[in-house]
């Protein structure tokens, strides 16, 4: 049983949550102009990362709110939890630089990028 920290309710058992797959998949800006290939990508293709993965969860048996999580898909360790609408923390870079001490830098503020900026829920 995994233990997740809901941004609203705090630490709760995994059984209170439901999975929502990859986070930050934006709805196409111009759906009418998409090719079949692009529709396929939007509907059926998701990252299947081995390692750090940004994903959505919903606290169904608690506040019933969706949130995002960065989790290691090999160790299942949760690296970051953040609210829907918040920009993805630069967790990947942070952890990468933390493992190489000579490159350790003060944490930069999260950078906006086109994917997260237009994210739907």
């Amino acid at each position: 049983m995994l233990l997740f920290t809901c941004p609203n309710c705090g630490p709760r058992n995994e059984t209170e949550f439901h999975y929502g797959g990859q986070a930050h998949v934006a709805y196409p800006e111009s759906p009418g102009e998409l090719s079949d290939r692009e529709w396929a990508e939007y509907l059926f293709y998701r990252e299947n990362t081995k390692g750090l993965f940004a994903e959505r969860w919903v606290h169904s048996a608690g506040c019933r709110k969706w949130f995002n999580m960065v989790r290691d898909t090999v160790s299942y360790e949760v690296k970051a939890v953040y609210r829907i609408g918040e920009l993805q923390p630069e967790t990947l870079e942070r952890i990468a630089s933390a493992t190489e001490p000579e490159q350790a830098q003060p944490l930069a503020p999260a950078q906006a990028n086109p994917t997260t900026a237009s994210e739907g829920v």
Binding site: N48, K50, R71, T73, V74, S75, Y76
Partner: peptide, 10 residues
């Protein structure tokens, strides 16, 4: 339910 490569589940 979640994506995983750990060869173990909950």
């Amino acid at each position: 339910s979640y994506n995983g490569y750990g060869q173990r589940g909950s």
